[in-house]
């Protein structure tokens, strides 16, 4: 569901000429509601390899000061690539997929 604020549509007289778009405006668009499963981060199993971050197609892994810091659930579509790519610690995954509660 898109942000209601941004979705207020302008008429042709007010709309910027042709289809110039503000860079990065998609950040305001929610794709988190596509998920049927959500990734859950288990910090104690995380070795901070950042493979989850580098493989996320949706820029939904939050990295702060070069450290994995959780997920942006507004954008995460729940594909589960992060969980598959996560090497974990001693055989224990730092990311697991759980069913999305609706």
């Amino acid at each position: 569901m898109a942000d209601i604020k941004i979705e207020k549509k302008k008429g042709w007289k007010d709309l910027p000429a042709c289809d110039y778009l503000e860079a990065g405006s998609a950040a305001a668009f929610e794709t988190g509601d596509w998920r049927s499963e959500r990734p859950v981060w288990i910090p104690e199993n995380c070795i901070q390899c950042l493979f989850c971050w580098v493989y996320c197609p949706d820029s939904a892994v939050v990295v702060k000061d070069s450290l994995m810091a959780g997920f942006n659930y507004k954008h995460c579509k729940g594909c589960g690539i992060c969980a598959v790519e996560c090497p974990g610690k001693k055989g224990k995954k730092a990311i697991v997929m759980e069913a999305e509660k609706k």
Binding site: D19, L21, E22, A23
Partner: peptide, 28 residues
């Protein structure tokens, strides 16, 4: 707006669906 003005990035040539195409054509 010009693409090589890299300090002011923008997108040009986005897909306009039913809700914007008509307004942009009306401008034209």
């Amino acid at each position: 707006n010009w693409l090589l003005d890299v300090d002011h990035p923008f997108t040009l040539g986005a897909i306009d669906l039913q809700d914007y195409y008509f307004e942009h054509k009306r401008q034209e």
